[in-house]
Amino acid sequence: MIYYITKIVITTVLIVAVSELAKRSSLMGALLASMPLISVLAMIWLYIDTKDVDKVSALSSSVFWLILPSFVLFITLPFLLRYGLHFYTSLSLSIALTIGSYWLMMVALNHYGVKL
Protein backbone atom coordinates (compact mmCIF):
# COMPACT_ATOMS: atom_id res chain seq x y z
CA MET A 1 0.00 0.00 0.00
CA ILE A 2 2.83 2.41 0.84
CA TYR A 3 4.37 1.66 -2.56
CA TYR A 4 1.19 2.76 -4.38
CA ILE A 5 0.90 5.89 -2.26
CA THR A 6 4.55 6.70 -3.05
CA LYS A 7 3.88 6.27 -6.78
CA ILE A 8 0.84 8.55 -6.59
CA VAL A 9 2.64 11.21 -4.56
CA ILE A 10 5.70 11.36 -6.83
CA THR A 11 3.60 11.51 -9.99
CA THR A 12 1.25 14.12 -8.51
CA VAL A 13 4.10 16.30 -7.31
CA LEU A 14 5.52 16.40 -10.83
CA ILE A 15 2.21 17.53 -12.32
CA VAL A 16 1.74 20.22 -9.67
CA ALA A 17 5.37 21.33 -10.14
CA VAL A 18 4.76 21.88 -13.86
CA SER A 19 1.68 24.04 -13.27
CA GLU A 20 3.32 26.05 -10.50
CA LEU A 21 6.52 26.55 -12.46
CA ALA A 22 4.54 27.62 -15.54
CA LYS A 23 2.92 30.41 -13.48
CA ARG A 24 6.37 31.94 -13.06
CA SER A 25 7.92 31.02 -16.41
CA SER A 26 6.22 29.38 -19.35
CA LEU A 27 9.65 28.34 -20.64
CA MET A 28 10.59 26.55 -17.43
CA GLY A 29 7.12 24.98 -17.13
CA ALA A 30 7.36 23.80 -20.73
CA LEU A 31 10.86 22.46 -20.17
CA LEU A 32 9.73 20.36 -17.21
CA ALA A 33 6.51 19.27 -18.96
CA SER A 34 8.33 18.31 -22.16
CA MET A 35 10.71 15.99 -20.36
CA PRO A 36 9.53 12.40 -20.57
CA LEU A 37 9.26 12.23 -16.77
CA ILE A 38 5.92 10.42 -16.74
CA SER A 39 7.18 7.88 -19.28
CA VAL A 40 10.39 7.35 -17.33
CA LEU A 41 8.47 6.95 -14.09
CA ALA A 42 6.08 4.51 -15.76
CA MET A 43 9.05 2.48 -16.99
CA ILE A 44 10.60 2.49 -13.52
CA TRP A 45 7.32 1.47 -11.86
CA LEU A 46 6.79 -1.25 -14.49
CA TYR A 47 10.29 -2.63 -13.98
CA ILE A 48 9.99 -2.56 -10.20
CA ASP A 49 6.61 -4.29 -10.43
CA THR A 50 7.56 -6.95 -13.00
CA LYS A 51 11.37 -7.07 -13.37
CA ASP A 52 10.54 -7.69 -17.03
CA VAL A 53 12.80 -5.75 -19.41
CA ASP A 54 10.77 -6.94 -22.39
CA LYS A 55 7.69 -5.17 -21.00
CA VAL A 56 9.73 -2.03 -20.37
CA SER A 57 11.10 -2.20 -23.90
CA ALA A 58 7.61 -2.65 -25.36
CA LEU A 59 6.32 0.29 -23.34
CA SER A 60 9.21 2.45 -24.53
CA SER A 61 8.57 1.55 -28.17
CA SER A 62 4.85 2.21 -27.83
CA VAL A 63 5.49 5.59 -26.23
CA PHE A 64 7.76 6.50 -29.13
CA TRP A 65 5.08 5.80 -31.74
CA LEU A 66 2.35 7.54 -29.76
CA ILE A 67 4.30 10.73 -29.11
CA LEU A 68 3.89 11.69 -32.77
CA PRO A 69 0.09 12.10 -32.73
CA SER A 70 0.29 13.98 -29.42
CA PHE A 71 1.96 16.85 -31.28
CA VAL A 72 -1.43 17.69 -32.78
CA LEU A 73 -2.57 19.05 -29.41
CA PHE A 74 0.42 21.34 -29.11
CA ILE A 75 0.01 22.62 -32.66
CA THR A 76 -3.75 23.15 -32.68
CA LEU A 77 -4.29 24.57 -29.19
CA PRO A 78 -2.19 27.74 -29.59
CA PHE A 79 -3.54 28.21 -33.11
CA LEU A 80 -7.17 28.03 -31.95
CA LEU A 81 -6.49 30.31 -28.98
CA ARG A 82 -4.82 32.89 -31.24
CA TYR A 83 -7.80 32.58 -33.58
CA GLY A 84 -9.92 33.83 -30.69
CA LEU A 85 -11.76 30.71 -29.58
CA HIS A 86 -12.60 30.33 -25.90
CA PHE A 87 -10.05 28.31 -23.91
CA TYR A 88 -12.31 25.33 -23.19
CA THR A 89 -13.57 25.24 -26.78
CA SER A 90 -10.00 25.33 -28.07
CA LEU A 91 -8.90 22.67 -25.63
CA SER A 92 -11.86 20.43 -26.48
CA LEU A 93 -11.26 20.73 -30.22
CA SER A 94 -7.55 20.11 -29.77
CA ILE A 95 -8.22 17.02 -27.68
CA ALA A 96 -10.72 15.74 -30.25
CA LEU A 97 -8.22 16.28 -33.07
CA THR A 98 -5.53 14.56 -31.02
CA ILE A 99 -7.79 11.56 -30.40
CA GLY A 100 -8.38 11.40 -34.15
CA SER A 101 -4.63 11.55 -34.71
CA TYR A 102 -4.09 8.67 -32.30
CA TRP A 103 -6.67 6.65 -34.20
CA LEU A 104 -5.00 7.45 -37.53
CA MET A 105 -1.62 6.50 -36.10
CA MET A 106 -2.97 3.18 -34.87
CA VAL A 107 -4.49 2.48 -38.31
CA ALA A 108 -1.20 3.39 -40.03
CA LEU A 109 0.90 1.30 -37.64
CA ASN A 110 -1.43 -1.66 -38.05
CA HIS A 111 -1.26 -1.27 -41.85
CA TYR A 112 2.54 -1.44 -41.74
CA GLY A 113 2.55 -4.35 -39.29
CA VAL A 114 3.80 -2.43 -36.26
CA LYS A 115 2.29 -4.00 -33.14
CA LEU A 116 2.02 -1.97 -29.98
Rank of each mutant, 00 (worst) to 15 (best):
I2S: 04
I2F: 06
I2E: 04
I5E: 01
K7M: 05
V9S: 08
V9Q: 02
I10R: 06
I10V: 13
I10K: 03
V13M: 12
V18M: 12
S19H: 10
L21G: 09
A22N: 14
L27D: 09
M28P: 00
G29K: 10
A30I: 00
L31F: 14
L32F: 14
M35P: 02
V40I: 15
L41S: 08
A42C: 03
I44T: 05
W45E: 04
Y47W: 08
D49H: 08
K51C: 03
K51I: 01
D54K: 15
K55A: 13
K55L: 15
S57M: 07
S57R: 03
S60R: 04
S60H: 12
S62N: 10
V63P: 01
L66W: 09
L68Q: 09
P69W: 08
S70D: 09
S70G: 09
F71K: 05
F74D: 07
F74K: 08
T76H: 00
L77S: 04
G84N: 12
G84I: 10
L85I: 00
H86Q: 07
F87V: 00
Y88D: 08
L91M: 12
L91N: 03
S92L: 14
L93R: 01
S94C: 14
S94P: 08
I95F: 15
I95E: 02
A96N: 05
A96Q: 03
L97M: 15
L97I: 07
I99V: 14
S101F: 08
V107D: 13
V107W: 13
A108C: 02
A108P: 05
A108I: 07
L109E: 03
H111S: 11
G113M: 07
G113E: 08
V114P: 03
K115Y: 00
L116G: 06
